[in-house]
């Protein structure tokens, strides 16, 4: 239909689709269900389930449509460039998202905790609080709720986190190696490289799960452990979530590679995922330095 080219230089405009609007309805249901759930109203969990299923189904349909359009040769150089620029801009927005949480971490370390410790003892409720990091804050009654500063041990950098750094950096190398395989049309290298990358991603997630388990059960380090606990879990948690998404995306392109998709000069799907994976990698380096190490 409209997708067929009228002349040599035709841009592919997809036909009308219902996936986006159904996905939005799914998001509305998921969000409303989540709000009901955290405020203890009925039916929250059920609404969340329905919403999540709708979203997942629509992602499958939508991405499936994209893949089949790609395989039918509807995307040429011009469309390809749109996807590339779009992916770069999207990754920039992700950088800004992480910057918010890094900003919160730096603000608490550099401004709020030193300030809380610096007040004249005669005029503060936090007399015995000293400026140190890691810190769970001075404790006290805020908004009518008493908070006793959590006792916890911070996560040491050179245990599991160092191993995780090694895993992610290696996975960055394997995905590049897979890319080289694709460029010289060595399909075996492509598939093995991607397989290794997926395996390393899953290994990273397992290590992080072990780390969280240890933090909660043995170290007293929880989401509620003041400034350190909040920034630690929010930063590593959102990063872990992105690793999970990246791994799912890698699994998709692994299967696509096994089915013979992509070639040396037509593989935006592969590159987009690889860029995303490198981005996740770089965020991790920031985490390792500022959350675990310093």
């Amino acid at each position: 239909m409209s997708s067929q080219s009228h002349n040599g230089n035709h841009y592919y405009v997809p036909n009308p689709v219902a996936y986006p609007v159904i996905m939005s309805a799914g998001l509305l249901t998921l969000a409303t269900g989540f709000i009901f759930n955290i405020n203890n109203f009925a039916a929250g969990k059920q609404m969340m389930m329905v919403g999540a299923l709708v979203i997942i189904a629509m992602i499958f349909k939508w991405m499936g449509a994209v893949i089949s359009e790609c395989q039918n040769g509807l995307y040429k150089k011009w469309e390809d460039k749109s996807f590339r620029v779009g992916m770069i801009v999207f990754i920039c927005s992700e950088v800004a998202f992480f910057a918010a949480f890094f900003g919160a971490l730096f603000f608490m370390r550099v401004i709020s905790i030193p300030e809380l410790a610096s007040y004249d003892p005669q005029f503060t409720m936090y007399k015995d609080f000293t400026d140190a990091w890691p810190s769970a804050g001075p404790g006290g009654v805020v908004l009518g709720k008493e908070y006793v500063a959590a006792k916890f041990s911070p996560m040491a950098a050179w245990g599991l986190p160092a191993i995780n750094t090694f895993l992610l950096l290696t996975s960055g190398a394997t995905v590049t190696w897979a890319h080289w395989g694709l460029m010289k049309n060595n399909r075996k290298q492509l598939v093995i490289g991607l397989f290794l990358t997926v395996a390393l991603g899953i290994a990273f997630l397992l290590c992080q799960a072990a780390e969280y388990h240890e933090a909660y059960t043995e170290m007293g380090l929880t989401l509620g452990a003041g400034a350190y606990g909040a920034s630690f879990f929010m930063l590593t948690g959102f990063h872990g979530f992105h690793v999970m998404l990246g791994t799912l995306m890698l699994i998709v392109i692994l299967f696509r590679s096994m089915k013979g998709h992509f070639d040396a000069d037509h593989h935006f799907g592969f590159e987009g995922v690889a860029w995303y994976w490198h981005f996740v990698d770089v965020v991790w380096l920031g985490l390792f330095v500022f959350v675990y190490w310093l």
Binding site: G103, A104, M108, S112, S135, G137, P138, V142, G226, A227
Partner: peptide
């Protein structure tokens, strides 16, 4: 979920929210 980003008792700061 019990975090203390904007709560002085936990080492956070309501002013952090204003900055963000």
């Amino acid at each position: 979920f019990g975090t203390h980003f904007f709560d002085a008792a936990g080492g956070g700061d309501p002013i952090l929210f204003q900055h963000l």
